[in-house]
Write a protein that binds this DNA or RNA. Structure first.
Lengths: 227, 227
DNA sequence: CGATTGCTTGATACCTCTCAACCCAGGTGG
DNA sequence: CCACCTGGGTTGAGAGGTATCAAGCAATCG
């Protein structure tokens, strides 16, 4: 289970390393020529649902969220994207999600037109596009299972265990996102997320350094909450 | 929003018509030679999660469900597949879902090996594979939004509206699946599904012919429940 | 400093689940 | 033919989990 586009290798978030090791497509393996490097400050929108999907993006540093909204404002975060992750790939003409900077972050954009031209020529690139889509699909399906059939305790535990794989030194999780982001990823409210984390602390499963820095003192127990 | 692999064209469930109009890949457009035609009786397993994924399938008639289980038996149905729909496409070596016959049904199987060989040669087929994966992804993401951020009333309404598009004569929905199937698709219990349908009947939004035959007497109202 | 933002905690409401009983149609066998 | 059984569906009562509403706290930033 992974929160986002996540190859199995796990690396630090240093941009160069990320680009070399985490990225399924690199300039070497078929992405069209690298586009402009863009910076976004916290909560800045990168693109909106319905915008013309003329570029795809790769995270260099920071964290990006992709999300959908209901008309009354309810939000579901589909995924958090970290360094090396690709986001914004669409089959149709428009983006089907919004994407925003969870924290200050840097992304590279690639013209979509160039990509499609290359794919029709390059069987390897086509294969990678298919592979990317299938991995995204698997992630979305696991997410649906989480949303549909797990309790709040299981959801929060799963989130911590998953996000811990993105942290450099195992055992300590750094949450770049707010409680609201976590709640909207898990289909909960901010209060339930907070209460569940507090419960984990009382049960000595985790220990807070700060609200955003958590030591997993008993990761096996957290993992066992995911059947 | 669609419940399953569903091109926008809507047709009856007659097999020949389905194969001609609903199927994104047909023998003509790149699927490897047609494999054996298989019949499954109600609730028979077609393949299990973890089985070697050596074939993909196309529904000829009937309805197939693909689902995942948690270790304690909780189930989530990912999708219902109707005539013309493809299911069982995997990137890895194993099926990531189980699939079972919702009712007596007929499917065609295709050797996966042949497909991959063709795809590496045929850019059009590669494109269709990518397109299939992206459509499945979009469906899974909408499903996640449903599971994570909608109430029971909204879920059941969305299900009825969606499933109605598969019925020949609009206005009447034939539910091939049990209440348990619906519940496991919506992340609810059987009782909540039943109560919600009864409530819709009291509110004159629907009318039961039988428990499995429902007239949508006020489809606009049902649709308006999906923001 | 005061204001703001993010987070936590408490009290209560309510939605959905759980457990149980019951109904109904269909099938089976005496 | 009818008693019985079974599986699917409905309904009720009550419990429980999560949401809602509200207050308070800590850190940050003008």
């Amino acid at each position: 289970m992974s929160l986002a586009f996540a190859p199995s290798t796990d690396v630090s978030s240093a941009a160069a390393q990320a680009m070399a090791m985490r990225t399924p497509w690199t300039a070497e393996t078929g992405l069209p020529s690298m586009g402009p490097v863009l910076h976004f400050t916290q909560d800045r929108e990168i693109y909106g649902e319905g915008d013309e999907a003329d570029a795809i993006f790769k995270v260099v540093s920071g964290v990006v969220r992709t999300c959908k909204f209901l008309s009354d404002g309810r939000r579901l975060i589909d995924a958090f994207h970290v360094a090396g992750d690709i986001f914004g790939v669409e089959a149709g003409a428009e983006y089907s999600f919004s994407s925003e900077a969870v924290c200050d972050c840097t992304v590279i954009s690639y013209r979509r037109r160039g990509l499609e031209a290359s794919a029709s020529q390059d069987a390897g690139l086509s294969q990678q596009l298919f592979s990317y889509a299938m991995r995204s699909l698997a992630r979305a399906q696991v997410h649906a299972l989480l949303l549909g059939r797990r309790s709040a305790v299981e959801k929060v535990a799963a989130f911590l265990v998953d996000w811990a794989t993105h942290s450099a030194n195992t055992g300590t999780v750094t949450l770049e996102m707010t409680r609201q982001d976590i709640a909207d990823y898990l289909g909960l409210t901010i209060e339930t997320v907070s209460r569940t984390l507090s419960q984990f602390e009382r049960d000595a499963l985790i220990a807070f350094s700060t609200a955003r820095q958590i030591r997993l003192t008993h990761p096996a127990a957290l993992r066992s909450l995911n059947s």
